[in-house]
Design a protein around this nucleic acid. Structure first.
Lengths: 339, 339
DNA sequence: AGCGATTGATACAACGTTGTATGCTGAGCC
DNA sequence: GGCTCAGCATACAACGTTGTATCAATCGCT
């Protein structure tokens, strides 16, 4: 079939191991034999068999990335960042979709045989509940993205959701708006981005001496665009005036934006709007959408670095699980511009 | 480390091969021993080592997907479809980005050692030129997406671009529009989607007895949103009246839409608009975007099936390369609705 | 009863690689 | 001149799996 070390060795008149050493730059090989071997390698177009290598070494050079759905812009862009950062470390990425965060599928990915294909997994959980937390206790390297499953004894990358939520809200208040609505809250939840971003919202209101009005808070289960539209209709139906809106992600914001426009409400003059996530699309909506950039490349880099340490042998017992936080940035676009 | 066949065999008091047979459902194994072995497998939490398996079998169960950029909605949704279809065939997908279609990167992916990680590659070429076509002549299974590199002696999945372009154009004409502009043309090119969709446009005009006006044709190099905006400004500057627009993909359409709105031109009443690709986002723009659905799941399924045949051993010499075409569908949304 | 056929299980080799142990030079030193 | 020691290269085993060949025991048939 394809050329092996054996073929090269025979062709160059040396032992298999010497060829292996040349390929990997190990051991002492005289310049003369090295030349000869390299020539043979080039001539025979030898390429190492990665299956054999990983059988021997126990490493595959592949990391897994499990996300709810690649069609969601946020995750597509995240995957993009992970692939690029992985590439930089000579790793390759295998993407698994949990089909919108299906719990059973998530568990299957965590424990299934396919885990063997990868050295470790970067996992953005969604459907698993806190009761499932124990199931995360797996031998192989794992890094969680986001703040779900807070009890899990695992490395984790998050962002400063409270601070970012506060900064987003503050950016609206700084425009002179005093009735800032928010959509996407999960008031009953104890943890999660929704809770943290909402905390930030509340904090910013307080710091600027504004009143928190429950009538301006809309709960939204899934942060999809259609739900953003629904939430906005609900808010409008309450007949409670507002002049600014913090949407907990860009999808919600874009859904809300559409309804606002249908109702003839101008953004930003009537209602200033800021989203969250900095999805590409927000730069092209009309008006373009102000947002919070979560620093995806940084998130990707942190996750991979954490993973690599575990892959390198640092077990959970050796080093306690850590949580790294990416830095965010407010992006000012048309939806919060002008008076 | 982790449990192997050996461990299970010892635990169940049988030979290694018997355990292997149970796992793979091969050979004859009595119900009694099968029970015993399965019990041991469950008890020891045995999972087959996929590296060893693929070393032995020569298959990895992984296919590669090389696309320009995951952040582009079209490719994200395509990747989604490929992953789902692969899953259905018990395959897993390794995504490689060619960084917006960088030629050197494309060649690297085609010939690099990482090809060994996968059983075959689904490749959406972009940067490679016709001069590079010969470099596609690789031993390992390969399927191209799209009509670039037309001379390549390789399996390929395309869509009926001419028919689809004609159908899109016709859907505008059927609204009563008589001055249909088009953006995205590559007039100097001999091949590619741009040429084919343009052919469709021309054909539809002719079939409906409309005149082809060069002033209504705008060339656009890269089909990005910003270029859609640029093209629209160029078209408006020509001061040539038009009442409908066929954009060669949704990105162009959305870019153009934004400019039309900035200029106070109403869509669809002043200008009816249709795009191409059925990117999710088009369903949420305002007005929502009519488009051509290229049938991504079908494309993914066809590509994987072609690949699997080659992986199964059908070499290019055995079976001549084939081209499969997906079926498309016009999606009517607000941008072509009403009078 | 004696024979071949069938069933159920086993031993062994091999996939291509790399780590370990070992061997063979010849140069340097007392 | 015999010793050590570095320098270079090799042989062998092992990673965990599966295909092939083989074998023992049981079965069915004349």
């Amino acid at each position: 079939m394809s050329t092996t070390l054996h073929d090269v060795a025979r062709h160059a008149g040396v032992s298999i191991k010497t060829v292996s050493n040349v390929v990997n730059g190990l051991g002492r090989v005289s310049a003369a034999t090295r030349e000869r071997v390299l020539a043979s390698i080039a001539q025979l177009d030898y390429r190492p068999n990665l299956s054999a290598r990983s059988l021997r070494s126990g490493r595959t050079g592949v990391i897994g990335l499990a996300i709810p759905e690649l069609s969601l812009a946020y995750f597509a862009q995240l995957a993009d960042a992970v692939i690029e950062e992985a590439e930089r470390r000579d790793l390759v990425v295998l993407i698994e979709q949990t089909r919108g965060g299906d719990r059973d599928r998530e568990l299957e990915l965590l424990r299934g045989p396919r885990r063997q294909l990868t050295d470790g997994l970067i996992f953005s959980p969604f459907g698993m509940t806190e009761a499932d937390t124990g199931l995360l206790d797996i031998r192989s390297p794992l890094v969680l993205l986001g703040e779900r499953l807070p009890e899990a004894n695992v490395d984790r990358v998050t962002m400063r959701n409270v601070e970012a939520g506060a900064a987003a809200t503050a950016s609206l208040i700084r425009l002179g708006r005093e009735r800032v609505a928010v959509i996407g809250a999960h008031l009953d939840a104890r943890m999660g981005s929704a809770v943290l971003r909402y905390d930030g919202y509340v904090r910013a209101l307080r710091e600027h001496g504004l009143e928190l009005r429950d009538e301006l808070v809309v709960e939204v289960d899934l942060w999809h665009r259609s739900n953003g539209a629904k939430a906005m209709r609900e808010l409008l139906a309450r007949d409670e005036p507002f002049d600014a809106l913090f949407a907990m992600n860009d999808e919600l914001a874009l859904g809300a934006l559409r309804v606002l426009q249908e109702e003839g409400i101008d953004v930003p003059s009537d209602v200033a709007l800021i989203g969250f996530d900095n999805v590409d699309e927000g730069g092209f909506s009309r008006p373009s959408l102000s947002t919070v950039d979560p620093g995806r490349p940084e998130i990707a880099a942190m996750a991979i670095d954490l993973l690599l340490e575990r892959i390198g042998g640092a077990s959970i017992d050796d080093i306690a699980p850590r949580e790294l936080q990416s830095s965010f940035r407010i992006i000012d676009r048309e939806s919060t511009r002008g008076a």
